[in-house]
Design a protein around this nucleic acid. Structure first.
Length: 566
RNA sequence: GCGCCCGUAGCUCAACCGGACAGAGCGGCGGACUUCUAAUCCGCAGGUUGCAGGUUCGAGUCCUGCCGGGCGUGCCA
């Protein structure tokens, strides 16, 4: 479709040579009209030019259309040109053109929809980035799936993509985690250990007396303690340092996290530990650079970042009076490092709870002289699980959460991925568990997969009854309205994937695939394959095959399986 | 108070970075299986895009001000 758009843009600009007053840098815009009656491609050039030419848009459109028709336009591509509405020029593709493109689609096969937009460019997508303090939750799930799919989209558009997980196992959170495990461990060693109760919100949990007040209450802590105790040798000493408990917990939890991600088909390329920024002094070097450039000052024993210079209400502490940095400083150092690593696109996937932190990081980058515009921050809103019409409350520390694994156990991996992807990241996501599993017949995921499976079934059956070698079919036999509609839908895949990658919006793909499935199902309803005369059946088999390719490639990008039977 | 996100059909959400008559699914109502997969399809009903202004040939989309919801707003991460 891009080729024809470029072709029309050239023709349009050439036609404008006869008009006085057209700006030198005028670039006509094209878009696909919402209403199919308005053709396949439309331009609002006449409206845009009205103020320069001092003529009514409709009159410009009429003159432009005449010029275009007089060139003349290539009938192998454009079937009609019409002026409509308040000055739109609508173009309709010729069937010949569509069939030619369909042929290209079939030739490209599994590669259809890939682009070279990102060739020679490197992209870094950072996502998940949960500290190993507990199992991944549903909230992490949305982040993980979103990031992974954005990475897929970039890869499909030719980018060399690195998927990165950033974490910190050195902070207070992890120390509390270690203390939580140690307390549970003590109770395993000595069942007579004194107990106390911790009240948190509406839950009340019995814990060993040594359990930290803000400790992690989840059952997995006890599991880790028990496993630690059952180890024949090397069981840690209670009187010693908390480190062995922390390390054991981290190891166990990280293994769980990776297992969960694997279930979702997610594999990270790099794990970046915040600690490394301390080990090579990067954090302190970054601070010195900020200081040298005059963005820092000392007050009350702390080091402050002059964020008010960037329009914020208050300055921000980078190093506490205790000498310990806040998380902002390593975050800035980490992102400066990302810029230094030479990526063309740097994408961060963040939950809404980090909404206040990333502006400081971007300000930090600017202060250091980096081009902060290279960093694209995708902030996604929260997920609410709904069961029986009521929201499910969640909190990691209180252990009242639903884990990502629980969710997948309940509704399946494919549904999990799709539900996280079908909404705009900006939209608060309501995940209706009842609908996700029980309504399998109305579920959009199954709808797409069913269309795919159905095509596979038809193609299998057709082979059985003797339709072989359809590859040489005469596609020009295709001309039914349902066939044309389907072709047009199929051919949009590349532009949808490119747009979705540019905007980091996977839901565009999900919505598009639904349209494709609808178009296919309508084609299926109107046009038979088996039973038709051989040549027509062969041509339709090819069209069905093309639909399978588009659905398969689209689902592949979304990370959802493509069943051949259901 | 301040910052970001959201407010669109009964419900959950789209709407291609300003375009034509605002679209889907679910739910509701009514139809369609001796036919390639009925996990399906067809039809009907359902809207002052939270409110009020402004910019524009043209606004759900941009600007201003209200109203309502979410997340933040710490020498926690």
């Amino acid at each position: 479709m891009y080729t024809v758009k470029e072709y029309l843009a050239r023709e349009l600009v050439a036609s404008l040579a006869d008009f006085d007053g057209v700006p030198q840098d005028f670039v006509p815009e094209f878009e696909k009209p919402k209403n199919p009656e308005h053709g396949d491609l439309a331009t609002n050039a006449a409206m845009q030019l009205a103020r320069y030419l001092r003529r009514a848009p409709r009159s410009i459109a009429g003159a432009l259309a005449e010029h275009l028709l007089a060139r003349p336009l290539d009938p192998a591509r454009i079937a009609s040109v019409e002026v409509a509405g308040s000055g739109f020029i609508n173009f309709r593709f010729s069937t010949e053109y569509l069939i030619g493109e369909l042929r290209e689609l079939l030739k490209a096969g599994e590669a259809f929809g890939r682009s070279t937009t990102g060739h020679g460019k490197r992209a870094l997508v950072e996502y998940v980035s949960a500290n190993p303090t507990g199992p991944l939750t549903v909230g992490h799930g949305r982040n993980a799936v979103l990031g992974d799919t954005v990475a897929n989209l970039l890869a499909w558009n030719g980018y060399d993509v690195t998927r990165e997980y950033y974490f910190n196992d050195a902070g207070r959170q992890m120390r509390v985690l270690g203390e939580s495990v140690r307390a549970r461990y003590q109770a395993v060693v000595d069942p007579e250990t004194p107990r106390k109760r911790i009240e948190s919100g509406d839950v009340s949990v019995e814990v060993p007396a040594s359990f930290p007040e803000d400790g992690y209450l989840g059952a997995y802590i006890t599991d880790i303690a028990e496993r630690l105790h059952s180890r024949a040798k090397g069981a840690p000493d209670l009187s010693g340092d908390v480190a062995p408990f922390k390390e054991a917990a981290e190891q166990a939890i990280f293994a769980d996290i990776e297992r969960t991600l694997t279930r979702l088909g997610i594999h990270m390329d790099t794990y970046f530990n915040e600690r490394s920024l301390y080990e090579n002094d990067t954090v302190w070097k970054t601070l010195e650079q900020l200081r040298d450039k005059g963005h820092c000052y000392d007050r009350d024993g702390a080091v402050w970042f002059r964020t008010t210079a960037f329009g914020k209400e208050q300055d921000t502490v980078l190093v506490k009076s205790s000498g310990e940095p806040t998380y902002r400083l390593p975050d800035i150092a980490y992102h400066a490092g990302k810029c230094d690593r030479g990526f063309d696109r740097i994408v961060d996937i963040l939950g809404a709870d980090h909404i206040a932190t990333y502006p400081d990081v971007l300000h930090g980058l600017r202060a250091l002289g980096y081009d902060a515009d290279r960093v694209e921050v995708i902030v996604h809103q929260f997920v609410t699980l709904v069961r029986g019409g009521a929201p499910v409350k969640m909190s990691t520390r209180r252990a009242t959460y639903v884990t990502l694994d629980d969710l997948m156990d309940e509704v399946g991996e494919d549904v999990t991925r799709f539900f996280f992807l079908m909404r705009s990241p900006n939209a608060h996501l309501e995940f209706d568990l009842d609908l996700a599993k029980e309504a399998s017949e109305k579920n959009p995921v199954f709808y797409l997969q069913y269309a795919h499976a159905r095509i596979c079934s038809i193609l299998r059956k057709a082979e059985e009854v003797g339709f072989h070698g359809a590859a040489g079919a005469d596609l020009s036999l295709l001309g039914h309205a349902a066939e044309i509609t389907l072709m047009k839908a199929l051919l949009r895949l590349p532009e949808v994937l490119e747009y979705a990658a540019a905007m980091c919006e996977p839901h565009q793909v999900a919505n598009y695939l639904r349209e494709v499935a609808v178009s296919f199902t309508q084609f299926y309803g109107h046009c038979r394959i088996i039973g038709e005369e051989y040549d027509l059946a062969a041509a339709r088999m090819q069209l069905a095959h093309a639909a399978r390719i588009v659905l398969a490639n689209g689902l592949h990008v979304l990370g959802i399986s493509r069943p051949e039977r259901m």
